[in-house]
Amino acid sequence: MAATYRIKLLAKALDEAGVQSGVLCTRAIDRPGSPRNNAARGVDSGIWFEYTPGSSLRSTTFVGRRWSAARGFVVALRRLRTLRRQGRLDCVYVYGYASNWNFRSWALAHLTRLMRIPLVTDVVELPWGLKEKPSLVESRTSSLAPFSGAVSISEKLEIWAKGECSRTNKPYIGLRVPALVDTREFPATVPVLAELQVLLSIAPEYVESVRFVRKAMESVWLAHPDCRLVVTGIDRADPHSAPILAAGVLDGDPRVVVAGYLSRADLAAAYQRSFALLAPLFGDPRSEARFPTKIAEYLAAGRPVVTSKVGEIGRILRHGVTAMLAEPGDAESFAECIRSILADGELAARVASEGRSLAQREFD
């Protein structure tokens, strides 16, 4: 998940700067059958972590999920109180609070604040204050209310955070930290590519994005009929992938390969075996606000990135230089970008090299 990857890199950066840090994950986030971490607690790359629900695996029952959420909440509060009493806690960095209001996150943030622990939040997605249809609670509550500071992933979200602080008469304390990536995960030397393929790494809930890419590939296949579309992040054995599989957008053509969930090492290898890495975005408020971590990973892999010219993407990336940028929501424009990479080896090599250099400068 992009969230856990960003948190891990932020914690590593703090550790390298001499600030001791740890991670409390209050939700079980791994899908049954595809755990990314079998340990409920431990140390990874010098950073201690704990899944406060007692496991990283989501329960398969409604009652089990509710119990897991309640346990995660209570144990997290106990851990924070203990660390505070021991004099080992100076600040809590809260990830994902601003996107959607829910009582558990709201209560955890406010109870932590009652312990006189400074809170900082990471604004990486469209906050509820910018939603077209916020809930009743969201319309009457500031998503920055319990926090002393904010870290924004994009220019637009940083501007929003400053405006929100001004609107609620509180001082703005914050900075912009873009998408993060560890380029050391990706070898600088890309292997010789033996098979024509492009890759889409995506979560199961993005049905329309997969449908869009499939439509673009129909056009690509007219010029490159042997090109495969490899899709990662979707697993035919996982119930969470059932809706997208039921939609039929991945069936009916042997050139579409559903690769399932891959380890970090296998995913990096899959990136580097591909002629292009795909990340479609649309002209919606969410796409305008963010810079997906997935695109930073793509760039670091040293392969040409095909995405859409929207929001922060259009500000940071240059078409034909660091990436190929299609018009948002235009499947034919997206297909033309893919075809350009497949047809022009010099262009592909140049875009890949410049994209990796950008990732090293801006995101590493």
Rank of each mutant, 00 (worst) to 15 (best):
E218K: 14
L77W: 04
V190K: 06
V75T: 10
Y93A: 00
F49C: 05
Q197F: 05
V75R: 12
R27M: 03
V74S: 03
A39H: 13
D330T: 06
A179L: 08
A349R: 15
L89A: 11
S148L: 10
L130N: 03
Q360C: 11
A161D: 09
G96M: 00
L126A: 13
A270K: 12
K131F: 09
R228Y: 08
L14H: 09
A2I: 02
I117D: 07
V43R: 05
A161G: 10
R78T: 07
S201T: 13
S357V: 01
A237K: 11
E164S: 04
L24G: 01
L229F: 11
H224R: 10
W221G: 12
R81K: 14
V23E: 12
R41G: 00
S166Q: 12
A17F: 05
Y261S: 06
A269R: 15
S135A: 06
V177L: 15
G311P: 13
K309W: 12
C165I: 00
S209T: 02
A28L: 02
P134H: 04
S135F: 00
T112H: 11
A145L: 09
E205A: 01
I244Y: 04
S241R: 07
D122C: 05
T82D: 11
L10M: 15
V94A: 01
E185Y: 05
D226R: 11
E354F: 08
R264C: 00
E185T: 01
N37G: 07
E16V: 01
T141W: 11
Y271V: 10
I341N: 05
L114E: 09
S68D: 04
R315E: 15
P285W: 02
L281D: 11
L83E: 09
A259T: 00
L89K: 01
N102R: 12
V92C: 10
R58F: 00
L175I: 05
A259K: 02
S152W: 02
P118W: 04
A109H: 02
K294G: 10
A352D: 07
R236K: 14
M324Q: 13
L89W: 02
D44A: 14
K170V: 15
D235A: 14
H224T: 07
S357R: 14
T322L: 06
M324I: 00
D30F: 05
I47F: 01
P118I: 08
P328E: 05
I29S: 09
L144C: 09
S154M: 06
R315P: 06
